[in-house]
């Protein structure tokens, strides 16, 4: 599936709920289902410090495909991390760099990504793209 298709699928999944609490219940489920990050990657270098919660992020590239691992100490943030990884993982650096992330806005969770929220997610999205950029440079 393309980055676009995965995003559309997530939007579809969230669209069945009108109530905020139902959306957040789904987000909590997603957070709980996120595969825990390998302990060896929970290093200070991989930490993205937010004002409210912490996010860890690691990235690897094998055969031109980038995979991400991430985690957070807050479950709602973890839910968004889980979606970001679902969307961004398994693609080439070019695909990751070319695609806009529109799903968070569309499912109504934009506030988690607002710069004032400072929960480490804005920095995480930036860092995911930075990894892709670094892998791309390395490839060339």
């Amino acid at each position: 599936m393309t980055i676009r298709e995965i995003q559309d699928e997530i939007i579809e999944e969230f669209s069945q709920f009108d109530d905020w609490m139902d959306k957040y219940a789904l987000l909590i489920d997603l957070g709980n289902s996120l595969e825990p990050i390998d302990e060896k990657y929970k290093t200070p270098q991989n930490i993205i410090e937010g004002c409210q919660s912490r996010v860890w992020l690691n990235a690897e590239m094998n055969n031109g495909i980038v995979t991400y691992q991430g985690e957070s100490d807050a479950i709602l943030v973890k839910g968004i991390v889980s979606m970001l990884i679902k969307v961004m993982s398994g693609h080439t650096p070019d695909e990751i760099l070319e695609n806009d992330l529109y799903f968070i806005d569309r499912i109504g969770l934009k506030e988690h990504l607002s710069p004032t929220r400072s929960n480490g997610l804005v920095a995480m999205v930036k860092q995911m793209k930075m990894y892709a950029l670094a892998f791309k440079a390395k490839n060339n």
């Binding site: 609490m21 957040y24 409210q52 919660s53 807050a74 479950i75 943030v77």
Partner: peptide, 13 residues
């Protein structure tokens, strides 16, 4: 439970 999670959900209420 992380304080952020409690705060975000309370906000929605």
């Amino acid at each position: 439970i992380h304080p952020y999670d409690i705060g975000m959900l309370l906000d929605k209420l």
